[in-house]
């Protein structure tokens, strides 16, 4: 209990309920997500939506780290650790997938617990650069640990988690379930008192520490949680693709997850999901023209970063402010970072 409080305790909570608009949007989104594989049965669109589910887990878990003020360029490495763990345990040790999945969460979380306290002492660009290098190291481990990982060719003919998941629709619903659980967890976490402390320490670390928030400990815990969640994506993705190769887990691929968050405005889980939809769906739809699709991707990144570093959230806010004629306060994490 606090010593000698100048103000006494009271009662009656002013609870804020989600607005009707938000509920309506959630209900609509839920209906679309549930109906998607039925409407597009047997179509490539089911596969794309499944990918989006998996990347939503990656992007939202990465946001847990970003919100503490650290832009990690090695998140995909942890996704890879989860993926390899799951595949190796299922294929070489004969584990059932549900146990392998638990290991696929535990392994990156453990790696995060070891490396996190070291990396998180760095801030700003140094953290970005070191995580970039760390991501590269992990990729090299995947390449060089041939007996386990199959080297740069990777591991082939990965079975689906269960035979019934050979059906893309079934895989979709399983991925959807995990995405809802993981993303829901992230949203819930960030809306709790922990989330308030996290947003506070990004905006004023000293001030927050003085309010009794164990800043460093929270950063480490968030890093570990994020790494653990990323393993879910790793396992789901590897078993869906039938193959796992080191090329999918380098720093450039981690950047992809960062960009999803950038497009979404960095401090918004829904934004990260929109970013994932954009970055996964768009290239996949241009599949026949792989090179052009990558060129467009690059150009879009340039244009977005040059013109609206706050991402789509900033774009929406600008549109809204134009509509209502009010000046919107666009203090995105990106803009703040850019000024330093």
């Amino acid at each position: 209990m606090s010593p000698q409080a100048p103000l006494s305790l009271g009662a009656a909570p002013p609870r804020t309920m989600p607005g009707a608009g938000l509920l309506a949007i959630s209900a609509l989104a839920g209906a679309v997500l549930l109906a998607w594989p039925i409407v597009f049965q047997g179509s490539f669109l089911v596969y794309i939506a499944t990918l989006v589910m998996q990347f939503s887990i990656g992007a939202c878990s990465l946001q847990l780290i970003i919100r503490t003020g650290h832009i990690s360029m090695s998140h995909q490495a942890f996704v890879g650790i989860g993926g390899y763990t799951s595949v190796i345990l299922v294929m070489k040790a004969g584990w059932a997938w549900h146990f392998a999945l638990l290991a696929a969460i535990a392994a990156p979380a453990l790696a995060g617990a070891v490396i996190g306290p070291i990396l998180l002492r760095l801030t700003g660009k140094y953290f970005v650069l070191v995580t970039f290098l760390f991501g590269e190291i992990v990729r090299l481990v995947f390449i060089d640990w041939q007996s386990m990982t199959g080297g740069s060719n990777g591991i082939f003919e990965i079975p689906k988690p269960y035979p019934w998941m050979n059906d893309p629709t079934a895989y979709y619903y399983v991925s959807l379930g995990f995405a809802v659980a993981c993303v829901g967890f992230c949203i819930r976490l960030m809306r709790s008192e922990i989330g308030r402390a996290i947003d506070a320490m990004r905006e004023g670390p000293n001030l927050t520490e003085c309010a009794g928030v164990p800043v460093f400990r929270i950063k480490v815990v968030m890093f570990i949680i994020a790494c653990g969640l990323s393993g879910v994506m790793g396992s789901l993705n590897a078993h869906m693709n039938n193959v796992i190769t080191p090329g999918n887990y380098g720093p450039m691929e981690s950047l992809n997850l960062v960009v999803m968050n950038v497009l979404g405005g960095m401090t918004n889980m829904a934004g990260a999901i929109i970013g994932a939809v954009f970055l996964i769906a768009l290239p996949e739809l241009l599949r026949g023209y792989v090179e052009w699709q990558r060129v467009f991707y690059g150009i879009i990144l340039i244009v977005v970063m040059a013109s609206m570093p706050g991402g789509m959230v900033e774009l929406l806010a600008r549109l809204r402010s134009r509509l209502t004629g009010r000046e919107a306060h666009l203090a995105s994490a990106v803009a703040a970072e850019g000024r330093t």
Partner: peptide, 17 residues
């Protein structure tokens, strides 16, 4: 600095392909 990292990664991708 930060915008440049991501924007120029975009340039890198565009140039490579």
């Amino acid at each position: 600095m930060f915008q440049s990292m991501i924007g120029l990664l975009g340039l890198s991708t565009a140039m490579i392909y």
